[in-house]
């Protein structure tokens, strides 16, 4: 078995117009910048993007939005140090927003990957974000029904990967990445290093390869925060 892909361009080549894409990361931490930029080079349009945020500055997801590739964002916190790309389009009615509490977003993605169509959570009960959702009482408390979230593609960032698709992550860069890997029809991971099968201790594998379809090596990946401090713009 060999899931390695030679280039980031090859890795995103199949992503078509209209796709729903989960993109890993929390802010810049764990964000697969090189895969996102390869996607911008290919420029599919009418995308639904699922991420905690809605871009910062002029790189990564913000740059996708600036290229008008994104029809809808599903996120918990579409604000950042420089949220102009999303904000301008949102206020002009050019991009849709589905706002989801952060923990509910994580659990909806987990449920999507775990084959659980709906679940109940206390989060958002009695608030505007629970409107229209079924509510049920368990042990005297009220809970809101939320549904699974799935995607056509997940593009994620990991630290080590092997040809079987096994992955480890780096520090808080783990965040949504292992959940998204489970919830997409096709999951592509960029990793800092591809190692031979067996070199990742099975005890240390965070995402087992069954959840991963493609692995592409990006040594020394860029960090969104560093790019923004250099006032980088992509493309």
């Amino acid at each position: 078995m060999d899931k390695t892909i030679a280039t980031v361009a090859d890795a995103v080549a199949e992503i078509p117009d209209g796709a729903t894409i989960m993109i890993g990361g929390f802010g810049g931490s764990g964000a697969p910048i090189e895969l996102i930029h390869a996607l911008i080079d290919k420029r599919p349009r009418d995308l639904t993007v699922i991420n905690n945020n809605a871009g910062n500055g002029h790189v990564g997801i913000a740059a996708m939005i600036e290229q008008d590739m994104v029809r809808k964002m599903v996120c918990s916190f579409p604000r950042s140090a420089d949220p102009r790309a999303f904000t301008e389009r949102y206020l002009e009615g050019r991009i849709e927003l589905e706002l989801v509490p952060q923990g509910t977003l994580a659990e909806r993605i987990r449920a999507g990957g775990a084959g659980i169509p709906a679940f109940y959570t206390p989060t958002s009960f009695g608030t505007d974000l629970a409107k229209g959702k079924p509510v049920e009482e368990f042990e005297g408390r009220s809970y809101v029904q939320e549904r699974w979230l799935k995607a056509d593609f997940a593009i994620i960032k990991a630290q080590l990967g092997d040809p079987m698709g096994n992955l480890t992550y780096r520090m808080a860069g783990r965040n949504f990445n292992p959940l998204m890997a489970m919830a997409a029809t096709r999951t592509i991971a960029q990793v800092s290093q591809i190692v031979a099968p067996g070199e990742i201790d099975p005890e240390q594998v965070v995402t087992p390869g069954i959840f991963v379809n493609g692995v592409v090596q990006v040594a020394n990946p860029q960090q969104e925060e560093s790019l923004n401090r250099q006032e980088a713009v992509y493309p």
């Binding site: 918990s76 206020l91 927003l97 952060q102």
Partner: peptide, 19 residues
């Protein structure tokens, strides 16, 4: 949210108040 429009953003606030 102040309820006055703009871009709504919730993050983890609604989760943190439970549990």
């Amino acid at each position: 949210s102040t309820g006055k429009g703009g871009v709504p953003a919730v993050g983890g606030a609604m989760d943190l108040v439970h549990g």
